Structure formats: structure tokens, C-alpha cells
Amino acid sequence: MTFYLISFPSGEMQLDEGGLEQASIDSHQVIRDAKAAGVYVFGGGINEGVPPVRVAADGTVEEGTYAQTARLEGGYTILNLPDRAAAEEWAAKIAKACRCRQELREFWFDEES
């Protein structure tokens, strides 16, 4: 089994009038299905109302982000799946529910973590 990150930036959802409510219903159903299938690990969205900070090894806290992650936002789901084909199937289900394409990334396995 491998952990996969399925995600999308918040601005990518293509919703018409009233579409947010239905997308919420549909996406929650996909998550319930993933839980029932025993593949769900974690899901949620970045709280864009809380500014990010960077924390150094000495505990110093600094406002802001790395340049590469300055626009980190949107929705994220982590699933534990047998292979990439299964991950692509789940990503398609999430894409349909959220009305936007999903990025699919595989976590590198480290037995120490």
C-alpha cells in the first residue's frame, strides 16, 4: 500500500449558481466512500484565513512562506491505496465531485516515518 496526495487549488473549482452546495454534498460522499473502503487517511482544506509562518530549529517564528509555497491553498486528501491505478480512480471520483481536475502525488516511503 502506498500513500497518495490528491489535491487542487481552491480557485480551480468550476461552480455555477448553487453549485457549491452540491459539490459539498458530492465530495463528502466520496470521502464517506473512501472511509468505507478503508483507504481514507486524511482530508481537508487549507484555512486561508490563518497566515502561514516558518518555524526555525531554535523555535524562532517568522511570518511568511517559502517562495515555492506562497500560494499553497485548496483541498487535500490523503489515501492509502494498493497502486497508482487505484489512486487515479479515486482522483477521478474527487475531480467529479469537486468539479475540477486533481493533482495526484505519491508519497515516498520511509519506514522510519
Rank of each mutant, 00 (worst) to 15 (best):
L15K: 02
A36G: 09
E17L: 12
D16F: 09
D16E: 15
V50A: 11
P9C: 03
R99G: 02
F107T: 02
Y40V: 08
R105A: 06
E48C: 07
Y76R: 15
A34T: 04
R71Q: 13
Y66T: 14
A56D: 07
A97Y: 01
E111M: 03
V53D: 02
T2L: 02
R99C: 05
V41T: 05
T77V: 14
E12Q: 05
E48G: 15
G59I: 10
G38V: 07
G75D: 04
N80I: 04
C98W: 15
F107W: 04
E89M: 10
G38W: 05
T69M: 14
R32E: 13
G64L: 12
K35H: 11
E103L: 00
A23L: 11
Q22R: 15
G74W: 01
D16K: 06
E17M: 07
G59W: 03
G59T: 03
A97L: 00
A34Y: 00
T77W: 14
E21H: 14
F3R: 14
G64I: 04
S113F: 09
E21Q: 06
G49Y: 05
G75N: 05
Q14P: 01
A95L: 06
R32A: 12
C100R: 04
I78M: 06
E112C: 08
G43N: 15
L104F: 06
T77Q: 07
V55D: 13
A70M: 10
N80D: 05
L104G: 00
Q68C: 15
I46D: 01
L15A: 02
